Simulated assay, not measured.
Amino acid sequence: MSAHGDAAAPHGSTGTKAERTRELLADTALRMFRAHGYDATTMRGIAREAGVTTGNAYYHFAGKDAFVHELYRRVVIEHRVRTQSALIAGGSLADNLRRALTIGVEVMAPYHSFGSTLLGTALRMDSETSPFSAASRSPRTDAVALMREVVDASARVPGGRPGERLPELLWLAYMGVTLFWVLDSSPDTRRTALLIDGAAPLVGRMVSLARIPIGRSLAADAIDLMDRVRTAGALREGQE
């Protein structure tokens, strides 16, 4: 398919010429990833398919890994938009979380065939494509904000510090589901669907414990641990 084929049309038609070129390159790369896989797709091939020079492609994206980061950004945006319309105001946290997790997997579904490659890219120590990297701060903030919307839409969620930090903890749970999904080779990733259906009520029950003294203590311990890990990571980044 040439650069003038229907699938190579830019994701958005507004913005400056540079912005349109960047969108065109991203759309082309992600389409080629889906069609041919990550390893078989090259920067030269992306540039040729998009109808730009290879140098121009590298001007907008440093390499294929940069397209992975763009994919993460787009997935978060679509996930958030679709989930917002699916949440039930006053519903249970378990039901709203299940909806959010299910939609997240649905949004990622077209890229499952090269999910292990994406995982390998994201897990490299020097990778900016990792959801935990400094370069991913913006989409990570949006993803946590999505979980805040899940919490806000749900009834009987804890207040105070546990309630304040709950969205971040739910995002970490979503990262766990994503890892399971990447490695899930069952037909139509059915095992991931089973995991979500079972985990969402379990998380809901665990969160409800934060409304009683012993549960609040456990929640505080979990938050303290998360903060210690985060601080250690920030110190490491500052030393590099």
Rank of each mutant, 00 (worst) to 15 (best):
M1I: 03
D6F: 09
D6Q: 11
A8G: 14
A9Y: 03
P10R: 05
S13L: 14
T14C: 15
G15W: 04
T16I: 03
R20H: 12
E23H: 13
A26M: 07
A26R: 10
A26Q: 05
M32D: 01
R34E: 14
R34D: 10
R34C: 10
R34V: 13
A35C: 02
H36Y: 05
Y38I: 10
R44V: 00
G45A: 05
G55T: 08
N56A: 13
Y58W: 03
Y59T: 09
F61E: 01
K64Q: 08
K64G: 06
D65R: 05
H69I: 01
H69A: 10
L71T: 00
Y72V: 04
V75Y: 01
I77T: 04
E78P: 02
H79G: 08
H79N: 13
R80T: 11
R80W: 00
R82Y: 03
T83P: 02
T83N: 02
S85N: 12
A86Q: 02
A86T: 01
S92N: 01
L93I: 06
D95N: 13
N96T: 04
R99V: 05
L101G: 01
V107C: 01
M108N: 03
G115M: 04
S116L: 14
T117F: 02
L119M: 13
A122S: 14
R124G: 12
D126V: 13
D126L: 13
T129I: 03
S133H: 09
S133Q: 11
A135T: 08
S136W: 01
R137K: 06
R137F: 04
S138P: 05
P139C: 00
R140L: 01
L146G: 00
M147D: 00
V151E: 05
A153F: 13
A153T: 14
A155N: 08
A155D: 12
G159E: 10
G159Q: 07
G159W: 04
G160W: 06
R161I: 15
G163S: 04
G163L: 02
G163D: 02
L166Y: 03
E168T: 02
L170T: 03
L172Y: 07
Y174C: 02
G176L: 09
G176H: 10
G176F: 09
V177N: 12
T178M: 10
T178I: 06
L179G: 06
V182S: 00
D184F: 04
S186W: 14
P187C: 11
D188G: 11
R190K: 12
R190L: 11
R190D: 12
T192K: 04
T192F: 04
I196D: 08
G198H: 05
G198E: 09
P201G: 09
P201C: 09
P201M: 08
L202A: 09
V203S: 10
G204N: 11
R205E: 13
L209N: 05
P213K: 13
G215W: 15
L218R: 13
A219M: 09
A220H: 10
D221G: 14
V229M: 04
R230H: 11
R230S: 12
G233A: 14
R236I: 15
E237A: 14
G238E: 11
Q239F: 14
E240A: 13
E240I: 12
